[in-house]
Write a protein that binds this DNA or RNA. Structure first.
Length: 285
DNA sequence: ACCCAGGTGAGGG
DNA sequence: CCCTCACCTGGG
C-alpha cells in the first residue's frame, strides 16, 4: 500500500501532546510503534500516524469524518497544559512529569476496551497483544459482541485465550442478548457505572477502572495494578504495603477528577525503566 | 522443572 | 471488606 498525497492528512495538536506516550502508555494494545511512527487499524483501515511537532500526519484515511473520529479517539483536544499544571501541585508528580509529559487519555470504544482488558488479566503485555492479534485475524477484524457470542468454542480456543475464553463468550452473549447495554455506563456517575461494569464476567475492580477511564471518560477512575500499587506504596505510603481499596480511595481524595491522569503518569514512569512503553525498547514483533 | 506476568472468582472469615 | 488460592499460556 503506497500512500499517495490524497490519503495524507494532518491533525493539529497543542503543546505537550505526545502521540508516542499516548499510544504506548498502556491504555491500548493495538498500535505498534516503530521508526518514530505508529501503525494500527482504525475504523477498519490500516493507518499510520507520525507526529511532527504540533502536527500529526495521518496516512490511510481520507474521509473528513474518519479524520474527525480519529481526532476524537486520540483526544488531541485534551487540555493537557492545564491538566499537567494542576498535577504538578503534587510533589511526586512534579518530579515525574518531565519524563512523562504529553500523555492524553484516549476515548476508546467500550467493547474493544472491555475485551482487551479482560484478556489483560494475569497476563503480560506481549502476550496480550498477540492474543488480540489472533482474535482479530481469526474473525476478520475486531469481533463484535454478536460475532463473539456465536463463535465456536474451538475458534476461541484457537486464539489461545486460556481460561479467559468463557469470560469473553459470556460477556458477548450477555451484551448481544440485551442483558447489558454498552452505552449505559457512559451516562452514569463513576460509582454507579463501576458497579454496573462489575456485573460482567471477567471484570473486576482493575479492569472496570481501566474501561471507565479509557473508554467512558471517567477521570476519577484509578486502576490499581501491581505496578501502580508498587508506585503508590513507595512514593505515597512511605514504602508501606497498602490494600488496593485504600490506594484507590487515597488517589481519588487527592486527585479527584484527575486521578486517572495521575495513574497514567505513575504507571508510565515506574514501568518506563523496564519494558512496555516503546521508548526504551526495540519494536516488538 | 519452575517461576512469573497489567487479576478474577470462589470460598471463608 | 480482607485474605487465600487456583488459573491458560508462553517466555525466561
Amino acid at each position: 500500500m503506497t500512500p499517495t498525497i490524497l490519503d495524507r492528512n494532518i491533525l493539529k495538536v497543542a503543546s505537550p501532546y505526545s502521540l508516542q506516550r499516548t499510544l504506548c502508555c498502556g491504555q491500548t494494545f493495538r498500535w505498534r510503534w516503530e521508526d518514530g511512527a505508529a501503525t494500527g487499524i482504525f475504523v477498519g483501515r490500516n493507518v499510520r500516524l507520525k507526529q511532527e511537532q504540533h502536527r500529526i500526519r495521518v496516512e490511510g484515511l481520507q474521509k473528513p469524518e474518519q479524520l474527525m473520529a480519529l481526532q476524537h479517539y486520540l483526544a488531541v483536544d485534551e487540555p493537557l497544559g492545564i491538566i499537567e499544571e494542576t498535577l504538578r501541585r503534587d510533589r511526586i508528580l512534579r518530579r515525574i512529569l518531565p519524563h512523562t509529559t504529553g500523555i492524553a487519555l484516549m476515548r476508546q470504544d467500550p467493547w474493544e476496551c472491555l475485551v482487551s482488558f479482560v484478556i489483560s488479566a494475569f497476563n503480560n503485555i506481549p502476550k496480550i497483544e498477540l492474543t488480540l492479534e489472533r482474535l482479530c485475524r481469526r474473525f476478520g477484524g475486531f469481533p463484535s459482541p454478536e460475532v463473539l457470542a456465536s463463535a465456536q468454542a474451538r475458534d476461541l480456543r484457537s486464539c489461545l485465550l486460556g481460561y479467559r475464553a468463557p469470560y469473553l463468550s459470556e460477556m458477548a452473549r450477555l451484551i448481544s442478548a440485551g442483558g447489558f447495554t454498552l452505552s449505559e455506563p457512559a451516562g452514569l456517575p463513576y460509582e454507579e457505572a463501576r458497579k454496573l461494569l462489575l456485573t460482567l464476567p471477567g471484570v473486576g475492580h482493575k479492569v472496570a477502572d481501566c474501561v471507565l477511564l479509557f473508554a467512558y471518560g471517567k477521570g476519577e477512575a484509578f486502576p490499581v495494578d501491581v505496578w501502580v500499587k508498587r508506585a503508590v506504596e513507595r512514593w505515597y505510603f512511605n514504602g508501606r504495603p497498602a490494600t488496593e481499596k485504600r490506594i484507590r480511595d487515597a488517589a481519588r481524595a487527592r486527585f479527584g477528577p484527575l486521578a486517572g491522569y495521575a495513574q497514567q503518569h505513575l504507571y508510565y514512569y515506574i514501568r518506563g525503566r523496564g519494558t512496555g512503553n516503546g521508548e526504551r525498547r526495540k519494536a516488538r514483533r
